[in-house]
């Protein structure tokens, strides 16, 4: 019984060691989140400026801002919603199957003639 307990609880030294590792990991993640957020603000500003200025042709602007939105989607899913973390295989299947059906629906409905 005593042996069993010993394997489950960490010594004080091991625990503090583990805490430091967690702390470093969280600080790294914090920095990544801030950078992601700054990138998203930046991409949003570029999209608004691209539309407000007359320097770029309309057809190109539409393609350009759609690409920017796509990049922001990846940032949200992988950074803010942690899709890149361990144990997200099935969630990824769920959301990407949804995205696949969604893309099909948008293409089909867009093409409808009114």
């Amino acid at each position: 019984m005593a042996h069993h307990e010993g394997t489950e609880t960490l010594s004080e030294h091991d625990q503090s060691h583990l805490d430091i590792h967690h702390k470093i990991a969280h600080e790294k993640e914090f920095k990544q989140q801030i950078v992601s957020f700054a990138m998203m603000i930046f991409l949003t500003m570029i999209a608004f400026v691209a539309v407000a200025s007359d320097a770029i042709s309309d057809a190109f602007t539409v393609v350009f801002i759609m690409i920017l939105a796509g990049i922001q989607l990846v940032f949200q899913l992988y950074m803010f919603m942690h899709l890149s973390h361990k144990g997200h295989q099935y969630p990824a299947w769920g959301i990407f199957f949804g995205v696949f059906v969604a893309a099909t629906a948008v293409i089909a409905l867009m093409g409808m003639i009114w």
Binding site: P91, F97, G98, V101, A102, L109
Partner: peptide, 15 residues
């Protein structure tokens, strides 16, 4: 999985 379904809901409205 619910969010996957919500994606389809909004896609139909976007389309």
């Amino acid at each position: 999985f619910f969010l996957g379904g919500e994606t389809v809901l909004f896609a139909s409205l976007f389309g």
